[in-house]
């Protein structure tokens, strides 16, 4: 079994009462409407690509649908220039790229570009969501490494 950020909750279910709280938090990020969940899914794909996480790229979040052309553009890294994305969407995906590498490198200009479209609350939700998306990608890979060691 190859665990991904989408299925990680099933693997961590044995964590006791922290497990349902972890899943409730995950669901809250995908059900809020301050940043479109489809845009969060594109962030997940971009982060997966930056991590070289092939298993992540092969799955989709079940609650959202992303047009294939937009999906491919984000994975390819062409979202900023290929005309498929609004400025606010480009701002979100650009911030996600920097976040994945070093959150301290996010500039005021990047944050302001997100706030202009999605507001203060939108920036907060985006940063929260990136933390859990990136974290679940990393933890899914670590879970797989541990599973392989026990095989």
């Amino acid at each position: 079994m190859n665990t991904t950020s989408i299925t990680l909750g099933d693997v961590l279910a044995r964590a006791g009462s922290a497990a349902p709280a972890f899943e409730t938090m995950w669901q809250a990020l995908w059900s809020q409407r301050r940043v479109p969940p489809a845009l969060l899914e594109l962030c997940r794909l971009r982060l997966a690509q930056l991590h070289g996480a092939a298993a992540e790229l092969a799955v989709a979040h079940p609650a959202v649908q992303v047009p294939p052309a937009r999906r491919d553009s984000v994975i390819r890294g062409g979202f900023a220039t290929d005309g498929q994305f609004a400025p606010g969407e480009v701002a979100v995906l650009s911030l996600a790229e920097v976040y994945a590498q070093d959150p301290a490198a996010i500039t005021d200009g990047m944050a302001d570009a997100v706030r202009r479209t999605y507001g203060d609350a939108g920036l907060v939700v985006l940063i929260e969501a990136l933390g859990f998306i990136d974290g679940r990608i990393r933890m899914a890979r670590l879970t797989n490494a541990l599973a392989r060691a026990g095989a």
Partner: peptide, 10 residues
């Protein structure tokens, strides 16, 4: 390990 995983991500 499952608890450590959830804690660390959080």
């Amino acid at each position: 390990l499952a608890h450590l995983a959830i804690a660390l991500v959080s």
